[in-house]
Every structure is written in structure tokens, then in C-alpha cells.
Amino acid sequence: MTRKGRRLTLIGAALAIIAFAAALALYALSDSIVFFYGPTEVLQKNPTPGTRLRIGGLVKAGSLVKTEDQKAAFTITDNANNVAVTYQGLLPDLFREGQGVVAEGVLEAPGRFHADTVLAKHDERYMPREVVDALKKQGRWQEGEAKP
């Protein structure tokens, strides 16, 4: 094979792999993107029930109810609107009422959400950025304010 032929083989193989990877990535992207909304956005955008979402905000004080078979129900709020969340499993160590939380799961009906993953902030100085932004959007958070 000539030098040119070899180079062409190489470039051909590279293009084929890159094209395959790009197709794979596009297909996977269209399938596995999850949007992040605050409670107000959930109401405004009103996604169809069954959509996979991540919802962030504060755990409303006094809203946590734990039942027997490891089920928990609580409310995520941005102090303007609320979303009722149900979850089965162990809540994370840092899950507290009145503090930031991100829940990932499926919207069952408008304002009702079933989470399969619950993430809480992992130290008292750190707050999930999405939660801060969601609260800022609602004007519930001023820059420099002591974090709730």
C-alpha cells in the first residue's frame, strides 16, 4: 500500500469512528437529558405527567412525614410555590427541614412528584447551585445574605 493509501485508511477509520460516536452521543443526548426546575417553574412550564425532572428548593418546615415501609413525603418550596414529593428509601444524612434539597424523579401530576433520588447539600457552607439560582429567580435570595 502506498503512503497515501495508508493515510487514507487511517483518516477513513478515524472519520468512521467519530461519526459513529457522534451518532451515539446525539441519540443518547435526546434520550437522557433531565431538566432542572424550581417549584415555580414546574407550575409555569407545566410539563406533561410522566416527564423525568430534577426539582430543587427548600424542604418546607413541618412538611416531612415518614411512614412505616421507608416511605417519606415532604414538600419542596421556593417560598412562593410548592411541590409535594413522595420518596421511598433512606433519606440522605444531610436531609433537613428548611434546608436545600434536589430531588430527581418523575412528575406524576401537576404539583405532585415521585422522587427516586434525593440529594441534600453536603456541608453547611455549600448549597446546590441550582437551588440558589431557583431561589434567586423568585427574589427569595439576596446576594450576601446569610445562607438559609
Binding site: A21, L24, I33, F36, R54, E104, D133
Partner: peptide
């Protein structure tokens, strides 16, 4: 301004197969 996450399915699909 849309917030999204790209989760494990994406990576399993692309990186896993490759």
C-alpha cells in the same frame, strides 16, 4: 438559561459502547 443534567444513561450509552 435552561438547566439540565446529563445522567448516567448518556455516559453508559456513549462511553460504554465505545
Amino acid at each position: 438559561g435552561e438547566k439540565i443534567t446529563v445522567g448516567a444513561p448518556f455516559f453508559n450509552m456513549t462511553c460504554g459502547v465505545l
